[in-house]
Design a protein around this nucleic acid. Structure first.
Lengths: 231, 231
DNA sequence: CAGCATCCGCTTTGATACTG
DNA sequence: CAGTATCAAAGCGGATGCTG
């Protein structure tokens, strides 16, 4: 928590969240909502446990993290973001947008957690058919599941399986992201090993909310059944 | 330059710009445009010279900083941002916005450079009277001068004196910022030692571009002469 | 003087082990 | 599960020296 000692808003912000691992801890809490210490460890591969403990304490003192004891049935401590912590979301959004091109140069040894998809999906996708009834997409990768709910003009994400998804996508997280962002056609994604089962209209429904990630749809491909697939 | 080793856009971004001092170096380059090594040192009080040199090299390798030899008359190396480096502006904007409330708790020993004002002014102010001819404001604090050009709906900032300003504001940088952002009335700013000479309509013309910083103008105060004041 | 490189003491980080 | 304790390694801050 060394300070830059500069009377500058940016420097003051970095005094609080500029330390190593800090913004990644906020990322995990934004994705997961209130969660346990071990969940954080799982989502932050490579962090030393003493560092995680220390950061959580500092973030709590800074009013960014809130510690709460879970409701009676469970005996666990939960860590969550305060409103002040949630206010960091635009920062992560812009930083992630800037860093997105760097993902291409990601090394083979890099850790990969499917739930990391949740943040870019929430940030950069939008519901291209706001009038249609809500639809649900389940993503599966690396033993994790993410539910993507599209409806009313917005896209929401949750960790875990969806009860009754309209489609299920399985495969490499990066390919799934590229597919949903419209940067990769379904045909090419399938050729690269992505499995798509269910209603493909959900796929066409999500759209990048910026003009950047242009969708490469030429002609509507043969649509599959609209019936939910088995969970 | 240690990597988090995570295939996540945010982590990749922090691999590149997450090190200590890095984003503050980008801040200086955004404010100043291409400038010399010693200018950077002056704008980054507290940085060790070996760190600055090392960071500049790393940032150059990362494609964020560009090194150019100054035109013939001057014998100096200039450091500037590449387009990729300028793309960090939204990140600094959001981080600065988040950190702004922390400025209140700034310690007495904190370093203060008037040119740091340039970034928040550029980010958060707007021209409230786009149809009026352009106006210029000169800010003076701590031996530094900043020109603020208001016109055509936008606000631009430059370092250095303005040739023919419509008004000159002198005093504590934080008070000047609060005054321009409409969070401090001219009367209170003057009571705190801020000197305002020239046309006060320029002051009423700049407006925070967000709904956050509400201007506290009740009734139009007696306006001073529109003639430029002496530089 | 501008633009570094080197050295040294200190702090932070990382890996592991251990505890209530 | 939720941390604390320990210790080696890396990074940082400050001073200084070198090169045009």
């Amino acid at each position: 928590m060394r300070s830059y000692g500069q009377a500058c808003a940016l420097a003051k912000a970095l005094d609080v969240v500029g330390d190593r691992w800090t913004l990644l801890i906020v990322r995990e809490l934004l994705i997961r909502g209130p969660c346990r210490y071990t969940d954080l460890q799982d989502g932050l591969p490579g962090i030393a446990t003493n560092l995680l403990g220390g950061r959580l304490r500092e973030l709590q003192e800074a009013g960014i993290v809130r510690r709460e004891d879970a409701p009676p049935p469970i005996a666990a401590t939960l860590f969550g973001l305060t409103p002040r912590g949630e206010a960091l979301e635009p920062v992560l959004k812009e930083l992630g947008r800037w860093g997105a091109p760097l993902l291409a140069g990601s090394a083979r040894g890099d850790a990969l957690r499917a739930h990391w998809l949740a943040l870019p999906l929430r940030f950069y996708l939008t519901d291209g058919r706001p009038r249609l009834p809500p639809a649900t997409l389940e993503l599966r990768a690396g033993g994790e599941a993410i539910s993507v709910e599209v409806g009313g003009g917005t896209v929401r994400t949750r960790l875990g399986s969806a009860p009754n998804p309209d489609a299920i996508v399985t495969g490499d997280p990066r390919l799934i992201l590229a597919l949903l962002a419209g940067k990769l056609s379904l045909a090419k994604a399938r050729a690269s090993g992505v499995k798509y089962a269910g209603d493909t209209s959900v796929l066409r429904r999500v759209r990048p909310s910026t003009a950047d990630g242009r969708t490469t749809r030429k002609r509507r491909p043969a649509s599959r059944s609209r019936a939910p697939v088995a969970g």
